[in-house]
Each structure stands twice: as structure tokens, then as C-alpha cells.
């Protein structure tokens, strides 16, 4: 085996990366209110407690509403931007794309306070809607990163062939381009939903009196006796995220294979 040292190091690094995720279920099933070693026996009580917490259910409902809306809106905006940037040359392309991708590197707290300032300035009350506005801003660059790969590997002659056969731009898009980039769109929907479900800072600043799941979780950290329940919730969320990501990865690869592109790997 080549690269023995590097292999050993990389495996060690993966252990570092996965350490928190491995500990999560250990403590979620541990029969003790304090999150510490030594362990104290197996219990599923913390998972049971998830069922009788109305505040949690309300936060979950809010997060699902926000996640679905943000996923759909940001993927739509992502389709427009990645189609425009991969298909056309137009003035101000670099600054416009730079602005759209900016949230990827900006600290979330700056984006959140900036949006908060404007929303309060124009007198818009904070609600789930304002959280959606913020999440769309954060999710769109990820959507573009995924969709650009799908649109760039698209062969332009397919579209031209459709025009020659008498299709209008809209019907050509629907009949030729959309089926080819559909896996990328599904992948984008799943990834943006996952990001929105997990996003904390925007929701913390923009939700007003409402709670989302991460805001609720952050609040519960102040009460040590509630932490095991949160870890049980976290276990479920991590499993859900991994399932969503694996599905997204499957569609992303299928999309790239479909359009005949080369897999460069990774979402970013």
C-alpha cells in the first residue's frame, strides 16, 4: 500500500472529525442526567421524552416550514443564476456572481444583523417569513455550487437541436434541459433543506418570538437536566442529515453521469 504514513494520518484525522458524532448516541442512550463518563447503563427514556414536549414540536414545525420554503426558493434562484452564468456572457457577470456567492464566506452574524437592521428599518415584524428571507440568502450559494456543475456539463448542441426542431426556448428548457439537470435540482433541494434545518444565527436574530429547532436547542443548553433529551434529538437529526446527504450525493452523481460530465467530487 502506497502512502502508508499519509493513510495513517488521514484515518487519525477522520477519527478527530467523527469523535463528536460517535459520542452523540453514546450519551443519548446513557442512563444519567449528567453528560459525563463513566457511563451508567442503557436507556431509551430520553427519546421517549421527545414525544411530550410541545415547545419542541412547535419548533420542529417551524423549522420544517422554513426548511421547505428556503429549499424551494433558493433552488429556484440557484437555477436562474447557474443557468445564466454557465450559458451566457453578460456585463457585470463577475461582480454580480461575486455578490450572490458572498454569503459563503461572510460571517453569518454580519449577514444576520445587516438583514435585521433593514427589516426593522422598513418596519417589517420578525416572523418565520423573515427567517426564510435570511435562509434563502445563505442557501443560494450552495445551490449554485451544486447546480453549476450540472449546467456546465450540459452540451449546448442538445438545446440548439431542440430549437431547430421547432421548440420554443421555454419548451426546450422543459423538455431537454430540465430532465438532464433534474438530479442536480433534487440534490440542491436536499442540501439547502439540510442547511436551513441546521442554521442557527439567522434564526436567532430574525425569528422574533418564534423558535426554530436550533434556537430551541441553544436555549435548552442552559438547563443541564434537559441536555440528554437534546442529545437524543441530536442523534435523530444526525441520522436524518446523513440520510438526506446520501440521497443528495446519489442524485448529484447520477446527474453528472447523465450529462456525461466528469465527477470532480464534493459539494463545494
Amino acid at each position: 500500500m502506497k502512502g502508508g504514513w499519509f493513510r495513517g494520518y488521514t484515518i487519525f484525522y477522520l477519527i478527530f472529525l467523527y469523535a463528536p458524532i460517535v459520542l452523540l448516541p453514546i450519551f443519548a442512550f446513557n442512563n444519567a442526567t449528567t453528560v459525563a463518563f463513566p457511563l451508567n447503563g442503557f436507556t431509551t427514556a430520553w427519546f421517549g421524552k421527545l414525544w411530550d414536549d410541545p415547545a419542541l414540536h412547535h419548533a420542529l414545525k417551524n423549522s420544517l416550514i422554513i426548511g421547505c420554503s428556503a429549499a424551494v426558493i433558493s433552488t429556484c434562484l440557484g437555477i436562474f443564476a447557474s443557468r445564466a452564468s454557465s450559458r451566457y456572457a453578460f456585463p457585470f457577470k463577475t461582480p454580480l456572481m461575486g455578490l450572490i456567492m458572498l454569503p459563503l464566506v461572510m460571517p453569518d452574524i454580519i449577514l444576520a444583523v445587516a438583514l435585521l437592521t433593514v427589516l426593522l428599518g422598513i418596519g417589517m415584524p420578525l416572523s418565520l417569513f423573515t427567517v426564510i428571507l435570511g435562509h434563502v440568502l445563505v442557501c443560494t450559494p450552495f445551490s449554485i455550487a451544486i447546480l453549476s456543475a450540472a449546467f456546465q456539463s450540459l452540451d449546448q448542441s442538445l438545446e440548439e437541436a431542440a430549437y431547430d426542431l421547432g421548440e420554443t426556448p421555454i419548451s426546450a428548457f422543459r423538455l431537454v434541459i430540465l430532465p438532464l439537470v433534474l438530479p442536480g435540482i433534487i440534490s440542491s433541494l436536499l442540501i439547502t433543506f439540510t442547511i436551513s434545518l441546521d442554521e442557527f444565527i439567522m434564526a436567532f436574530f430574525l425569528a422574533g418570538n418564534e423558535n426554530t429547532l436550533p434556537v430551541y436547542i441553544f436555549g435548552q443548553f442552559r438547563f443541564p437536566q434537559n441536555v440528554p433529551v437534546i442529545l437524543a434529538l441530536g442523534t435523530i437529526l444526525v441520522c436524518l442529515s446523513i440520510a438526506l446527504l446520501a440521497t443528495a450525493e446519489y442524485f448529484r452523481r447520477r446527474g453528472i453521469a447523465k450529462t456525461g460530465g466528469k465527477d470532480t467530487g464534493g459539494f463545494l
Binding site: 477522520l14 472529525l17 467523527y18 469523535a19 463528536p20 458524532i21 459520542l23 452523540l24 439540510t194 442547511i195 441546521d198 442557527f200 436550533p214 436547542i217 441553544f218 443548553f221 441536555v227 437534546i230 442529545l231 441530536g234 437529526l237 444526525v238 442529515s241 446523513i242 446527504l245 450525493e249 467530487g265 464534493g266 459539494f267 463545494l268
Partner: peptide, 18 residues
């Protein structure tokens, strides 16, 4: 790469707490 990115996508708050 997928293995490396998975931990990044799982609840940030809970990872920090852990």
C-alpha cells in the same frame, strides 16, 4: 470526500456542545 464532508453537515450546535 463524502466521508470528510459528512460531519460538517450534521447539527453544528450539537457538535460544538459535544
Amino acid at each position: 470526500l463524502f466521508l470528510i464532508t459528512i460531519p460538517f453537515w450534521t447539527s453544528y450546535l450539537i457538535r460544538v456542545f459535544l
